[in-house]
């Protein structure tokens, strides 16, 4: 039951983008070796970019 609740919570966080920064940190640690060219973004900086990126193009429908 607790496991199920945790799983649901993870899904809600992922769907809403609440854990986007954590996902970015994982991505950064795994994929980026060029730390000088791409310095690690702070949470506020990352969120700004993430949010602006998310709202380009057709995102909502009828």
């Amino acid at each position: 039951m607790v496991g199920l609740f945790k799983k649901a919570w993870r899904i809600v966080r992922r769907l809403s983008g609440d854990d986007a920064y954590e996902q970015y940190l994982i991505h950064y640690a795994l994929k980026h070796s060029d730390h000088d060219e791409h310095p690690l973004l702070s949470k506020a900086e990352f969120f700004k970019q993430w949010q602006d990126e998310k709202w380009k193009g057709v995102k909502r429908c009828c």
Binding site: R14, L15, H27, K31, K56, K59, R60
Partner: peptide
Amino acid sequence: LDNGRDFVPTHKWIVFGHHFAAIAGPG
């Protein structure tokens, strides 16, 4: 093209959620 921002491989249920939220409007 994974760039950690707009191109992100995502679990299918999460993609389903995003896709459904995007297509389901007042129509």
